[in-house]
Design a protein around this nucleic acid. Structure first.
Lengths: 254, 254
DNA sequence: AAGTGGTCTAGACCACCAA
DNA sequence: TGGTGGTCTAGACCACTTG
């Protein structure tokens, strides 16, 4: 039975046709098979060994092609199980104009949000923190690092730094950082965010349930009091495949 | 002369110490050497063959470790030249509250901005375009795809779709899409943007001078007229390593 | 227990770059 | 021209999942 996999991997004299590296030709064949509908969401591919035989290349070459597609989010591999076409992931949308906390935000959506502590304590500030928070030598910072989880899917890593002058005791923070700051009368009213994209490092990717090199949104936020004084400096990493920031723009005079 | 490379790659019984995959142990050694200052920005590493000999592993294993770090932006490789520690890239900042065009924006910064046409013409709309632009069957769209370049560095790929009812002739667009829309009285005043992160596909990465799998910012924008009617639907991909979006947030009642 | 992906090796040839 | 990274092979063993 000449099945679809033979057409995909062995069709037209194998990969002899065409030029360029074998793993790229192989990669293109798989992408074409998906866009042509020969392979659908969740479908299993043959094993790497079988693909190698069908396409008449080494398994190393098959792996190179497959890993590229895994890295691009086209395929997923499960150890001991097989290689499959990715299913799209449901995305969370986050409006970009209002200052909200993760907890508030997720519960408003009806998601079950929780956090996992990564670190919570008092430290000597890094140079980066000194600049961002405007600290003097000898000052100390509270660091609150959390893994944010919504409906059992890790969504983000959040690393917050606050001067001990604003938040003397990190143990006072249970679920909401802003609520704890409120207690001391230091709730921020304004913030500046910088958003960029980055390839996740192995450690961070692991926390988010992704692979090293997967795309993440990196967000740096500096929050201000009404008086203009800096309260909080937070660096976050969001899953690129599950998070959308939404912003409304208007045409400005300036 | 027992140089620093021996300490990095061959120190303490090679990689025999420790557990886990060899390429991860090797990767960690390089990362540690950089964070310890043993390797600085722009420094050259030994050749892959030399590292393999120093660490007593195969070259394939060295490549796996090095490629991981290249993918994370820690190292850069130049074919025929060598492997080097990355130098940080200058970043461009884009405010996220004002609706501006790329050309206007870059010239205000004193950058020399130009575009390269990727595609410009009239097409039958894709299902995605029909939904976004609110088209009826039989309607047509103008597609304007450009590679945005600032000071000879490719910064973004921009794919804009506009109903032919708003912009009958794509050839009317020379540098600024908004200027062309203005001529017909259809300049947008408001827009909604969705921002997320993605691993760039090989083709897009090539246009941006990056490697497949590198992180990019994906932005979808829908622009509206004063009347609320949709004008433009644009999907952009920005270099993750060279672009920052900046947003100001305020605490809201709602 | 059989099959899958994950890691690793030794060796080869090619394409590119710099001296 | 010699050294570099880029691609490719055939074969091996391990770790994990599933029937």
């Amino acid at each position: 039975m000449p099945d679809r996999f033979e057409r995909i991997f062995a069709g037209e004299n194998g990969l002899a046709a065409g030029s360029g590296p074998l793993y790229i030709r192989l990669r293109n064949r798989v992408e074409r098979a998906i866009s042509d509908g020969l392979l659908g969401d969740g479908d299993a591919l043959p094993s790497e060994r079988d693909i190698a035989e069908l396409a008449d290349v080494s398994r190393v070459t098959v792996r190179k092609a497959v890993q590229d597609l895994v890295r691009d989010g086209v395929l997923v591999q499960r150890h001991g199980s097989g290689t499959f076409v990715s299913k799209p992931v449901a995305r969370v949308e986050q409006p970009l104009s209002r200052l909200t906390s993760f907890t508030e935000d997720m519960s408003r959506r009806g998601w079950n949000a929780r956090s996992q502590w990564l670190q919570r304590g008092i430290f000597a500030p890094s140079p980066e923190e000194m600049v961002a928070l405007g600290l003097a030598p000898g000052d100390e910072v509270v660091r609150i690092d959390r893994l944010r989880i919504a409906d059992e899917m890790p969504l983000a890593i959040e690393r917050a730094s606050i001067s001990t002058q604003m938040l003397p005791d990190p143990q006072k923070v249970d679920t909401s950082l802003y609520a704890a700051l409120d207690v001391y009368g230091f709730r921020p009213v304004r913030a500046l965010q910088r958003i960029s994209a980055t390839n996740l490092r192995a450690e961070d990717a692991g926390l988010l349930g992704l692979e090293a090199g997967d795309a993440g949104l990196r967000i740096e936020r500096i929050s201000y009091l009404e008086s203009g004084r800096v309260v909080e400096f937070t660096r976050s990493l969001y899953r690129g495949d599950a998070y959308d920031f939404v912003a409304e723009l208007t045409i400005g005079k300036n």
